[in-house]
Each structure stands twice: as C-alpha cells, then as structure tokens.
Amino acid sequence: MTYRVRIENADGEVVTIEISADELREKGLTLEELLPPNARIVEVEEVEP
C-alpha cells in the first residue's frame, strides 16, 4: 500500500509526498515522525501501488 501525503510546512507551503507502507515499516517510523519541525499533515490518501 502507498500513501499520498499532503504536508504543510512552517512557511505555509503545501507539498505532496508518496511513501509506501513497506518503507515506513523498514524505517520503523510513523508518518508523523517523518515530518520536519513545525510541519503538519493536511491530508493522507491511500493509493494503489
């Protein structure tokens, strides 16, 4: 499974990243732990691999 994640950074700019569930598991991280300081998740969407 892959996630498309929209993130708002500290400057108010919204960027989109895609990350797979396998990648998260391998790194032992959650989506929140990948965020840079002062950023927030705006939207998470599951996409087909």
Score class of each variant (00 low, 15 high):
residue 29 L to D: 01
residue 22 D to Q: 13
residue 4 R to W: 07
residue 4 R to V: 13
residue 3 Y to G: 02
residue 40 R to W: 12
residue 1 M to G: 10
residue 24 L to M: 12
residue 11 D to G: 06
residue 31 L to E: 00
residue 2 T to D: 14
residue 13 E to W: 08
residue 5 V to E: 00
residue 32 E to G: 08
residue 46 E to W: 14
residue 3 Y to S: 03
residue 30 T to D: 04
residue 44 V to P: 01
residue 17 I to V: 09
residue 47 V to P: 03
residue 25 R to I: 11
residue 39 A to M: 08
residue 23 E to M: 13
residue 21 A to W: 13
residue 2 T to V: 15
residue 36 P to C: 03
residue 25 R to A: 09
residue 15 V to M: 12
residue 19 I to E: 00
residue 24 L to T: 01
residue 33 E to D: 15
residue 20 S to R: 09
residue 19 I to G: 00
residue 11 D to R: 08
residue 22 D to V: 10
residue 23 E to K: 06
residue 34 L to V: 12
residue 40 R to F: 08
residue 14 V to E: 08
residue 46 E to C: 13
residue 44 V to A: 02
residue 3 Y to F: 11
residue 39 A to R: 04
residue 36 P to F: 04
residue 45 E to N: 08
residue 40 R to S: 05
residue 36 P to S: 05
residue 22 D to I: 09
residue 10 A to I: 09
residue 42 V to W: 05
residue 37 P to G: 05
residue 30 T to C: 08
residue 29 L to H: 04
residue 30 T to S: 09
residue 25 R to G: 04
residue 26 E to Y: 08
residue 12 G to Y: 02
residue 25 R to W: 09
residue 17 I to P: 00
residue 47 V to E: 03
residue 18 E to F: 15
residue 17 I to H: 02
residue 43 E to C: 14
residue 38 N to P: 04
residue 24 L to A: 02
residue 5 V to F: 03
residue 13 E to D: 09
residue 6 R to L: 13
residue 8 E to C: 13
residue 31 L to T: 00
residue 46 E to P: 06
residue 14 V to Q: 11
residue 7 I to K: 00
residue 21 A to R: 07
residue 45 E to H: 09
residue 14 V to G: 03
residue 27 K to F: 07
residue 41 I to N: 02
residue 24 L to Q: 01
residue 29 L to S: 05
residue 30 T to P: 07
residue 1 M to T: 13
residue 21 A to I: 10
residue 32 E to N: 09
residue 8 E to S: 06
residue 16 T to Y: 12
residue 1 M to C: 14
residue 46 E to F: 14
residue 9 N to L: 15
residue 18 E to I: 15
residue 43 E to Q: 13
residue 5 V to D: 00
residue 28 G to W: 03
residue 18 E to A: 05
residue 20 S to C: 04
residue 16 T to S: 05
residue 15 V to D: 05
residue 19 I to F: 08
residue 24 L to H: 01
residue 38 N to I: 02
residue 45 E to A: 08
residue 46 E to S: 10
residue 2 T to E: 05
residue 27 K to D: 02
residue 22 D to G: 08
residue 8 E to W: 09
residue 39 A to P: 02
residue 6 R to T: 15
residue 44 V to E: 01
residue 39 A to D: 02
residue 19 I to Y: 05
residue 35 L to E: 00
residue 5 V to S: 00
residue 17 I to T: 01
residue 16 T to Q: 06
residue 44 V to M: 06
residue 29 L to I: 12
residue 19 I to P: 00
residue 7 I to S: 01
residue 28 G to T: 02
residue 43 E to S: 15
residue 4 R to S: 02
residue 49 P to G: 13
residue 40 R to H: 07
residue 24 L to D: 00
residue 39 A to I: 10
residue 37 P to H: 08
residue 42 V to N: 01
residue 22 D to F: 09
residue 16 T to I: 14
residue 17 I to A: 01
residue 29 L to C: 10
